Amino acid sequence: MGVIDKNNSIIYAGDLVSKFGIDIKQAYEILEFMRDRELIERAYEMNSSICKCINGEVFNTIMSVPDNCPKCEREIDCLEETIVAYKY
């Protein structure tokens, strides 16, 4: 299914914002800079806009994200309801 063990080295742009006091755009620029150099890879986490379900599953590809939320069972819009994370 493409699920990543979340305990194995996942970082979010918000982590950089909190740790270094930078804005979210700068955080994504840093993470994408690292990704371009193959130091990290993108990963994806579902976040339902209705029930705010974040069940902890992180996926290798956007196509691996389930079509329906496991909590509210509503169809998910992957482009709008997915958080980009990075694995290293």
Rank of each mutant, 00 (worst) to 15 (best):
N47M: 14
G21A: 05
G56L: 08
I24N: 11
V84Q: 06
C72N: 00
V65N: 03
I4M: 05
I24A: 07
N68V: 10
K25H: 09
A85L: 07
L39T: 06
Y28R: 05
E73C: 07
D15M: 08
Q26G: 09
I62N: 06
L79Q: 13
M34R: 12
A85N: 08
E80G: 10
Y44P: 01
V65P: 03
G2M: 04
E38S: 12
Y44H: 06
M1C: 04
V58L: 00
T82N: 06
K19R: 15
C69N: 00
M46F: 00
G14E: 11
V3E: 14
C69R: 02
C51D: 02
I24L: 15
E73G: 01
K19P: 01
I76D: 00
I30W: 08
E32H: 14
I40R: 05
V58A: 03
D67N: 12
G56W: 04
K87D: 03
C69G: 03
E57L: 13
D15S: 15
L16D: 04
E80S: 14
I76V: 15
Y12I: 02
N47C: 12
E38Y: 11
S18E: 13
K6Y: 14
D5N: 15
M63Y: 11
G56M: 07
S18W: 04
D23W: 01
E45M: 15
D23I: 04
M63Q: 14
C51K: 07
Y12T: 10
K52T: 09
I76K: 01
S49P: 01
I54T: 10
D23V: 03
Y86C: 03
D77M: 07
G21N: 14
L31F: 03
N60M: 08
Y28C: 03
S48Y: 04
L79H: 12
M46T: 03
K6G: 08
M46D: 05
D67E: 15
V17A: 05
I4V: 15
C69K: 01
N68Q: 10
S64F: 05
S49N: 12
